[in-house]
Design a protein around this nucleic acid. Structure first.
Lengths: 220, 220
DNA sequence: CCTTTAATTAAACACCGTTCAAAATAAAGT
DNA sequence: ACTTTATTTTGAACGGTGTTTAATTAAAGG
């Protein structure tokens, strides 16, 4: 297996048969596969390189850095989530039910892929380089989805009211998912992520959808 | 400064004058001081040891491991937050205002100490050792605070209804803080953490407090 | 076939948390 | 005061990390 050593110091560099895009997909697959069983803390560039049969350096000049490699994996995760959400929506018409489906599907993903989901939010880029635009547009798509439901829920609502409400709902659902995945709810067994999401949506939306029925007087 | 070298290989171990408790406080102070300016990612045991003038090994057999050192610093942070919350509450009587004060004070802490706040939730212990009980009781104290407000808000509510609502509120507020600190809200400037918390509390509580006024029929 | 270009690599670098035997100190015994 | 014992504290070593770089190889162009 080891190549021939000549001259005391020697050799290597055998070109594999993967295009850059194939290799990227291979690596991202390895990341997500690893995170199915092991926490993000245990992931490393060197292990990853071993898994896909390339050297650490190859992965670095493919993605730019280890941080950007993780970012690429996170982008794939976001795509996967967006796909699940839109698929879950096709059989639901009522806008409040749609929001419920979105939130519960999101929770479901977090519970089924806790490590993959955690790394989405625990991975911080160095402050010098900003989040790439393609990442931003993915997130924007999720917000737009929520805002559309809100518009159906209350057609009299203003744009900026829906904008704010979408952020509140997203953040709240996200907080519930996070504490559920981290097991930091310290709640009795009857209180699950599902029941919390139901409580949140029914109460928040119940009040929100009637708050602007007449002459647009916002509460806050 | 360097001790005398004799015999080719040499010396060291000058006993400093700190009791274990003093040293712990010194280290925790160094952690929190560091996190005022630098992200958790850049913190390390070795730098920390240099800051307080001890060797890495000393800190390890003081706290057990680097992970437990961070845990101790997080405990100090939780105490600090609990202290701020209870102090902020003394001038507020109305229970809904109290909840608002709690949430806004919590948000304020997160914004003023983002790195210290982030490490509270991004630090995961290895699964083999559980979260210590003194940590759990601290968190339980925060929940009890919220549940007391909810009881004032709706004296007819059941114990388990308040239990659930306290978790929903806490998780939602937490989610808002997290996305605000991480700059992941992608919202227009008018939508701030404060306005989101106000929206969340007014709508959620507005519905919640009347949901059990008569014969205890819960929505979920 | 030779040259150029691009891909891939091993090795080196500067870190990291942890372990451990040895060194230095303090405390106890005489 | 001296010796012994016990306790801190440490440097050095170990195996790991992400990243850089010079060398090597394969492929492409002429």
């Amino acid at each position: 297996m080891k190549s021939i050593i000549l001259n005391g110091v020697q050799n290597m560099a055998r070109r594999k048969d993967h295009s850059p895009e194939e290799l990227k997909a291979l690596v991202i697959g390895a990341v997500l596969g690893f995170l199915q069983n092991e926490p993000a803390k245990k992931l490393s560039l060197r292990q990853l390189a071993k898994m896909v049969g390339y050297s650490p350096g190859t992965l670095i000049n493919l993605f730019g850095s280890y941080a950007h490699l993780i970012l690429a994996a996170n982008a794939a995760t976001l795509d996967l989530i967006a796909d699940k959400l839109s698929k879950a929506l096709v059989n639901t018409q009522n806008p409040q039910d749609q929001l419920s489906v979105i939130a519960l599907e999101y929770l479901n993903f977090a519970k089924q892929h806790p490590f993959q989901w955690q790394i989405l939010f625990e991975h911080h880029l160095a402050e010098e380089d900003e989040v790439p635009h393609w990442q931003l547009s993915r997130i924007d798509g999720l917000f737009t989805l929520i805002e559309k439901c809100l518009e159906q829920l209350n057609p009299h609502s203003q744009n900026d009211e829906r904008h704010k409400a979408s952020r509140v709902i997203w953040a709240a659902v996200h907080g519930i998912c996070m504490l559920e995945v981290d097991n930091k709810l310290f709640a009795q067994d009857s209180v699950t992520g599902e029941s919390m999401i139901n409580s949140l949506l029914s109460h928040y939306l119940g009040s929100w959808k009637i708050s602007n029925q007449h002459q647009g007087d916002d509460q806050q």
